[in-house]
């Protein structure tokens, strides 16, 4: 099947103050495919994906050069509305972070701020999103209870549902399962695999088995540089760089 580029990253550099954290990254992310980013801790994977939805803007003293082209337009152009960007590019964080509100209000938050009015419309969106996140069956009878009462795995799926509710095109997952137990992790991996039918997905993970199971393409990050990138099966079975091979076989990181 022919997949075109959804996101093209060109010559991306990022500085935290004087430290160069991302070094000349170049990458193509294909539409409706799962792209995984692996590498040792602290090597820039999270910083990288946070450039795609410009969440790094929230940090003081960060400087970015290069291009992150979403459907051909650089998201860092001066005329880009960051608020609209983040509607198109959703993010799920490492630790589940549902708002201290009811389940319903958590999901309805996004649609409401983007202008959806009317109880019926919101009800529908809440149900659809929870179903798409494979959580509906577990919470349909307690939509008005606090989201903080759900288990860790449920909270994370809630966060996924919440992101889906604003109907994004791209989903960024930043180590979504690292705070979860194996069973919840499995559920979310299945979910991600199914979501790629409708969404372009980028997932950062330090769990290589997860990357191998779930992704179509994988990139290996080391010290802020994208060392190798390619078809997941190819990269894991026949890595081109020695560092990649060392990492995969567990010699470091």
């Amino acid at each position: 099947m022919e997949h075109k580029n959804k996101i093209e990253i060109r010559n991306l550099n990022l500085w935290y103050s004087k430290n160069l954290a991302l070094k000349n990254n170049n990458l193509d992310i294909l539409e409706k495919q799962v792209t995984a980013l692996i590498g040792p801790s602290g090597c820039g994977k999270s910083t990288f994906i946070r450039c795609i939805n410009r969440m790094n803007d929230l940090i003081d003293d960060v400087r970015v050069t290069g291009e992150v082209n979403l459907d051909g337009k650089n998201v860092y152009d001066a005329d880009v509305d960051v608020v609209a960007l983040r509607k198109r590019v959703g993010m799920v964080f490492q630790r589940p972070n549902p708002f201290p509100m009811t389940v319903y209000d958590n999901i309805a938050y996004g649609p409401k701020i983007h202008g959806v009015r009317g109880r019926d419309k919101l009800d529908k969106i809440v149900e659809e999103s929870l179903k798409a996140a494979a959580l509906w069956n577990e919470v349909s009878d307690r939509l008005t209870t606090s989201a903080l009462e759900l288990s860790g795995g449920q909270q994370q799926r809630l966060c996924i549902a919440r992101t889906l509710a604003v109907k994004p095109e791209v989903l960024l997952f930043d180590e979504p399962c690292s705070a979860l137990d194996p069973i919840s992790t499995g559920k979310i991996e299945d979910l991600i695999y199914n979501l790629k039918r409708n969404y372009t997905i980028v997932i950062v993970t330090h769990n290589m088995q997860q990357a191998a199971r779930v992704s179509d393409f994988t990139g290996f990050f080391l010290m802020g540089e994208l060392l190798e990138f390619g078809d997941t099966k190819e990269l894991f079975e026949h890595p081109k760089e020695k560092a990649t091979e060392d990492y995969i076989t567990g010699r470091f990181g």
Binding site: K87, G90, M91, F93, F99, Y109, G110, I113, R162
Partner: peptide
């Protein structure tokens, strides 16, 4: 109020004021 609540709100495309008034202050 933990940063992650603010980040969650911003990542869904909320403005500063929406994040403050709908998430941070209620929390």
């Amino acid at each position: 109020v933990p940063r992650i609540y603010r980040e969650g709100s911003y990542s869904m495309g909320a403005t500063d004021w929406e994040t403050i008034s709908r998430v941070v202050v209620p929390a």
